[in-house]
Amino acid sequence: MSLISNLRAAAAVLVLSTAPALAQDKILNVSYDIARELFEALNPVFAADWKAKTGRDVTIDQSHAGSSAQARAVLEGLPADVVTFNQETDIDTLVQGGLVPENWRELFPNGASPYYSLPAFLVRKDNPKGIKDWNDLTREDVKVVFPNPRTSGNGRYTYLAAYAYALDANGGNQEEAQEFITKLFANVPVFDTGGRAATQTFAEREIGDVLITFEAETAGIAAQYADKEFVRVTPSVSLFAAFPVAVVAANAEKNGSTEVSNAYLSWLYTPEAQKILAQNHYRVTDASVAAEFKESLPEVKLVTVNEAFGGWAKIREEHLSEGGILETLFNN
């Protein structure tokens, strides 16, 4: 008897969970790992905004993991309506899968990137190892924590920023740059698969002398663990990390969420949203909001991926491919 009633209950749930929501908008935002708190802050404000404008309720579901891992999951069928990633290549992956139109960069302002950040450092109280710049990270007495560049966009930016720094410091000598990266990797005690796990390793488990992650995360942790008095360190030069967004057109169409998905991503450019982004320590493109938060964000020389590497396509081919520079250095 319990078997039948169990099955019946299960069937009821199946029906309930697959029935289309009535008069209720719904989006699934598939995002990078450390954006958990960010979208928790953004989503309710957008929902209120949407309700005021259209009179409709909207539910926004969140999924977080390493950016590239998420791109793959969407490619494999995770029904994302919008993606908010930290790397353009991850959206290009979806283009190749026919889920996002090729011209996605033109569909929203700023190359479809409503905010940006950069790889920055976080060190322990009073900076006991005196870490100031990238070249301090290859010293033998320094333990460095950052996520696995093979699975995490965050970690990949760190790899590329360090590489760009080394190229710059060595007059563009590839071999010396690779030697620098090899030394850097040798100083890493743990490679977590996502940005947040790396944060936990550094902050909770107290491993490593320096954590490299997005500036927004370093500021967030410094505030969260105020009692541990971590110190934020901005290197002399870093990589401009765009955070691209896109509507997953194929899925949104199927789910009937195209309108609300577009509205959601457009809303990220409004002063209201930009302010929340800035409060979460991202750098924003809205001039007035950027000016308001100028003090909390130090000046830094940022190089773009195009300047340092000649674009993502080239990075893909030379660095990230199977047997490419990254994998070779990683297994040394």
Binding site: R150, P189, D192, F330, N331
Partner: peptide
């Protein structure tokens, strides 16, 4: 700790390959 070559187990490597 998932350190390549030292503490990375095979099923994790399979998982990473998927990711």
């Amino acid at each position: 700790g998932n350190l390549p070559g030292q503490t990375e187990i095979a099923s994790l490597l399979a998982f990473i390959r998927i990711e």
